[in-house]
Design a protein around this nucleic acid. Structure first.
Length: 152
DNA sequence: CGACTTTGACCAGCGC
DNA sequence: GCGCTGGTCAAAGTCG
């Protein structure tokens, strides 16, 4: 196990013992306004009837920093990639993933820090409302703690 | 054959 | 008003 993560989120309290020991990358550039609007599916807001692309979501987002060589962190859920973009501040492309579970609209973004290619920033959006498919000790633990933090 | 990835295009929000 | 940027869709391709 060589994954060390740091949680950034809405109400970030001191971390418990068995979780998150990251010392290398303490400065994340995540100043995201975490709006705690608890909406299970706030995606029915289609202002433009083109293709339903504009889903104004107000879901809370939680950013992890993970020290890992690989981008794809198997946290026990099944993710399907639905997009990839190059962002301006970062020379690495950012990947967009979505949970493939039926009715689960949880999304996540995978992005590397442009300073440290080893550091992967994982931004979760929304909360899973279903059990984990593959039991993975480490990340299951992290996600559990994440739910505690966010109050869900 | 089904599930997933890739990739370009499209769209809305925001700043200038 | 215009252009840039981020986020999403969908068709085609790939893999197990």
């Amino acid at each position: 196990m060589e994954n060390c993560a740091t949680i950034f989120g809405s109400s970030y309290s001191p971390a418990p013992s068995n979780l998150l020991v990251n010392t290398d990358a303490q400065q994340a550039e995540f100043q995201d306004e975490v709006s705690l609007v608890k909406g299970p599916e706030t995606d029915e807001v289609k202002s433009g009837n083109k293709k339903g692309r504009n889903r104004r979501r107000k879901l809370p987002r939680y950013a992890f920093q993970t020290r890992s060589k690989v981008d794809i962190l198997d946290d026990g859920y099944r993710w399907r990639k639905y997009g990839q973009k190059s962002v301006k501040n970062n020379k690495f492309p950012r990947g967009y993933y979505r949970c493939t579970h039926r009715g689960c609209n949880v999304k996540k973004q995978i992005q590397r820090l442009f300073e440290d290619g080893d550091i992967v920033v994982t931004t979760y959006e929304g909360m899973h409302s279903h059990p984990i498919e593959h039991s993975n000790d480490n990340f299951e633990n992290i996600l559990s703690q994440m739910k505690i933090y966010s109050g869900f």
